[in-house]
Write a protein that binds this DNA or RNA. Structure first.
Lengths: 221, 221
DNA sequence: AAAATAATAGGATTTTTTTCCTATTTGATA
DNA sequence: TATCAAATAGGAAAAAAATCCTATTATTTT
C-alpha cells in the first residue's frame, strides 16, 4: 500500500528532517552517495527502480529514526500536514444511568461534554467514533442484571434508523430511558425485548423515540 | 532501526495474519514463490540478504495491509503482544474462540502475535493495556447467549490471582477453555458459575488452571 | 494408504540495485 | 569573479535480489 513515489518521497523527507541532502544521507549511512540520485530512481527506459530494505535499514540506523517514523513520512506523501496528527487517543463523554433517567429532556447531542472520568480508562472504536456520536453510560443500577452487571459501562453509538440490530439504549419522547434488545421492527413501530426476561416486550411507536443508540461495547466492572 | 531478522519476521507474520504461508503470500503478490524462502535470506556464504521495497509494496497491495501494519509487525519482533501497545494503542491480538478451544496448549503469552485483523478497528485503553497482557477473543459460537451474543468480541486481561471478580475466560491444565462467572473462591478451589444457567456450576482446583483472564470489555456484534 | 497439493531447499540464470567512476551543475564563500 | 565543496547525472562494473528450474519434504485430500 505504498507507491514508488511514496517511498522516494519518504527518503527525501527523512534526509531533510535530519538536515541532510538525500545524497548526504546516503553517504552518512555508508552507502554510495549516488544511491538515491534522481537518476537512479528509474531505468533509462523509464521503469521504476526501488531501493532495497538494506538501504532503508542503514539510513534509519544512522539517523536514529524508527521505521514507524519513516512510515509516517511515506504514508503521508501528498497529504496535508494536519492529516497526520490523528494519533492521540481521544475522550468520550460519560453519564450516569440514574442521572439521565432523572432528566426527561436529556439529549446526548446537546449534553455538556464532560469526558474526564472516562478518557484515560477506556477503549473505543476509533474510526467510527471520530465520525459518530458516541456516549458512555455508567450503569449505576442492578435492574439489567445478569446481562449488564451493576457498574458496567455501556459505550453507545447513536443511530438514525431503527434497524434490527441488537441491544440498544433509547429515550422516548415522554422522557423515559429504555435499555433492551430490538426483536422486530416495522415501518412505524419497534419491539423492544426486555433483557432480563422479567418484563414483557414493549412496543414503541417510531415517532415516540427521541433518540436511539446501539450498545457497542460493555465493560465488566 | 530494524534488523535483517525483524524484516523477515515481519513478512512471515504478515503472511500468517492473512492465513497464508510465506510462499503463498509471495505467489499471491505475483512474485516468485521462492522469493521469501528461508534459503534466500542469506547467501551460501552466510551473508544476509534483504528483500526489496518493491516486494514489500507488492505484498501490501495484495493483502490490503498498510505499511503501518507491516511496520508494527517488524518493530514488535521478539516482543510480547501487550508490549506493542505503547507505540500503537490501536492494536491488540485477536483470536477466534473456536480456534483456541481446538488447541489444547494455547497460551496467549506465547501465541503468535497477529494483530492485523483488529488493529484498525479498535482502540484500547492505553495505560492499562501497555502493562497488562490483554487479548481479544472473537466469540464465534452461540453457546454463551444471551449473555454474550455470537460474534461478540471479548477483551480479556490476564491475571495472576483468582480473586472473586466476575466473568472470566480461563484454560484448565487439561486444555479446556472455560467462560463463566466466579461465584466463590477459596484457597484451593474456585467455583465457576455457568453464564447461561443451563449447566451447573463447576468447581475447579486452583492448580488445574493454566491461565485466567478477566473479561473487561464486550462488544455487541 | 495413495495421490494430489503446497511448501521448501538449492543451484543456475536473469534482472535489478548498488557501487565506482567521471563530468557537469549548483551554491556558498573569499 | 574565482574557487571550492557538495549535489547531481549518467555510464560501466560489481553485487545482490528475483526468477526459473528441479528435487525433496510436508500437508491435505481422496
Amino acid at each position: 500500500m505504498f507507491s514508488h513515489d511514496d517511498i522516494w518521497n519518504g527518503i527525501d523527507r527523512l534526509a531533510s528532517a535530519h538536515d541532510l541532502s538525500t545524497s548526504g544521507l546516503a553517504k552518512k549511512a555508508g552507502l554510495d552517495p549516488t544511491t538515491f540520485n534522481k537518476s537512479k530512481r528509474q531505468t533509462p527506459e523509464g521503469k521504476p527502480r526501488w531501493p532495497s530494505t538494506e538501504s532503508l535499514s542503514k539510513i534509519l540506523s544512522v539517523t536514529g529514526a524508527t521505521l514507524t517514523e519513516l512510515t509516517e513520512l511515506i504514508e503521508s506523501n501528498g497529504k496535508k500536514p494536519s492529516k497526520n496528527v490523528d494519533k492521540t487517543p481521544f475522550s468520550i463523554t460519560s453519564f450516569s444511568f440514574k442521572d439521565i433517567v432523572k432528566k426527561p429532556g436529556f439529549d446526548p447531542s446537546h449534553a455538556k461534554h464532560s469526558p474526564v472520568d472516562i478518557s484515560l480508562e477506556h477503549v473505543f472504536d476509533f474510526e467510527d467514533f471520530s465520525q459518530a456520536m458516541v456516549l458512555c453510560v455508567l450503569l449505576d443500577t442492578d435492574e439489567f442484571e445478569p446481562t449488564f452487571k451493576k457498574n458496567s459501562k455501556l459505550v453507545c453509538r447513536l443511530k438514525e434508523n431503527f434497524v434490527n440490530s441488537g441491544r440498544v439504549l433509547a429515550k422516548t419522547s415522554d422522557g423515559r430511558i429504555l435499555i433492551g434488545e430490538i426483536s422486530s421492527v416495522s415501518k412505524e413501530t419497534l419491539e423492544l425485548k426486555c433483557l432480563t426476561g422479567k418484563n414483557p416486550s414493549r412496543r414503541i411507536e417510531a415517532g415516540d423515540i427521541s433518540w436511539i443508540a446501539d450498545i457497542i461495547w460493555t465493560s465488566q466492572p
